[in-house]
Amino acid sequence: MIEKTEFDRSRVLWWTLTAALVGTLGLVVYSYIGTFVFGIFIYYAARPVYRRLRRVVDRPGFAAAGALFAFEIPFLAVTGYLLFLGIKELERSAGAGAEVVAWFLPIPAAELERAVADPATYVSSFDAASINEIVSTGGDVLGPVSTFFLHLALGIAIAFYLLRDGEHIATWLREEVGEESALWLYATLVDRDFQVVYFGNVRTVVVVALLALGVYNGLNVIAPPGLKIPIPNVLALLTGAATLVPIVVGKIVYVPVTVYLGLAAIESDPATIWFPVAVAVVALLVLDLFPIMIVRPVFAGQSTHRGAMMFSYIFGGLLFSWYGVFFGPLLLIAAIHLVRVGLSELAHGDRVTAMVTTAHGLGSMPQPDGDPPDEAATGEADAPVGE
C-alpha cells in the first residue's frame, strides 16, 4: 500500500511538472505566435529544396543553410521588391504610396514624397537641425524596423533547425506512437498538406505576380499613345493575389482593365481597339489558363479544398493580423484532417483507426506503399482536387 501511494505521488509530481513546463512553453509560443508561424511557413516552403540538396550534401546543417540562402532569401527579397514597386507606383500615380508607408513608420508623408521624388537633393538638403531631428526621432523609426528584422531572423532560425533536425523529430514521433497508429496517419496527412499549401499556393502567387509584371509592362511598350495599362505593377500584385480565388484567378483583375481600355479606345480612337483585345487574349493565355493548367498543378498537386483555403487566407488575416495568412491555413488543415481521421469515430463511440473515414476529397489521401518520399511530401504524385 505504501509503495502504491509513493508511486501515485510520483506520477502526480511528474504530471504537475509536465503541465507547468507545457503551460510555460505554450505561453512563450502564444506570445510570439507570429514568429513561430512564419518560421513554420519558411520551413515548409524550403523543405523540398532541402531534401534535394540532401541527395548531394552529406551534412544536414549545410543543406539547410543552402536551402534557405539559395532559395528562401531570394524569394523573400523578390516579394519585398514587388511590394516596393507597387507602393512606389501608387505614390507616383496618386500620392498613396507615401501614405501607406507612413502608416507603418512615424515619418510624415510629405517627407517620404520628397525622398522618393529626388533622393540626392533630399539628402543634400540636410543641415545640423535636420540631422539632430533625425537622430532624436531615430529611435521611433529604428524600433519597428529592428523588431521586424529580429522576427525575420528568428523565423529563419526556426526554419533552419526544423530543416536540420526534422528527420529526428519525425523518427522520434513514429517510434513513440507507432507507424500504424491513427495519430501517425494524422500527423503525416497534416504535414503533407502543410507542404502543399506553403510551397505550392504561395509560390503560385509569386510566379503569377512576376508573369503579370512582365505582361502588363510589356504590353504598355506597344500600347497606343494615351491607352496604356494604368499602375501595371500594382495590378501585377493584385493578379498574383487573385490566384487564391478558385476558378476566377486573374479574371478579377484583367477583365475590368480590359473593359476600361476598350471604353477608352472607343471614346478616343476606335482604330486602337486592337490593344484591349490583345490585352484580353494575352492575359487569358498567360495569367489565366497557364496558371490553372501548368503552374498550380506543378506547384500544388493535391491540396485542401480551394474554396476553404481561400476563406482561411481571408479570415486568417482578418482575425490574426499579418501572420494570419500563414496561421489560417494551418488551423484549417489541422481541423480538416481531425474530421477526416478521428472525429466521426469519436462522435459514434468507435475506436479511432489509421484510416480516412470521411471527407475524402478535402485533402491529401494516404500514400500507397513505395511512393518516393519527395513526391509523398510535396503532393507531386497526387491529382488536383477541389477546383
Rank of each mutant, 00 (worst) to 15 (best):
G307F: 12
I87H: 01
V245I: 14
A376R: 12
G95W: 11
V281N: 05
K228V: 05
I333N: 04
D382Y: 03
V101F: 10
L112Q: 09
H151V: 00
E133Y: 12
D350N: 06
G379C: 08
L235G: 01
R51W: 10
F84T: 09
T171P: 00
Y323F: 14
H348Q: 10
E175H: 11
I131Y: 15
S125F: 01
P108E: 13
G61V: 11
A64Y: 02
E176Y: 14
T204Y: 08
V123H: 06
L25Q: 05
R192Y: 13
T18L: 12
G139H: 07
F71C: 02
A377E: 13
N220S: 03
L152A: 08
V206S: 01
Y50C: 03
V196C: 12
V279H: 10
A187L: 15
V206M: 09
G138H: 06
T378E: 09
E91K: 05
G301E: 02
A94L: 12
V295D: 04
E179Y: 15
P372S: 15
Y30L: 11
E375K: 09
I87A: 06
R51T: 08
A241Y: 03
I42S: 01
E99C: 03
L338H: 14
W184E: 15
I169P: 06
G328C: 12
I231M: 13
V221D: 01
E175T: 12
L332H: 06
S364I: 05
P368I: 00
T16H: 08
L21P: 00
V208Q: 05
V28I: 11
M1E: 07
R164N: 02
L13V: 13
L263R: 14
I134V: 14
A170L: 15
I252P: 03
T243K: 01
R92T: 10
E89N: 03
Y254V: 06
F299D: 02
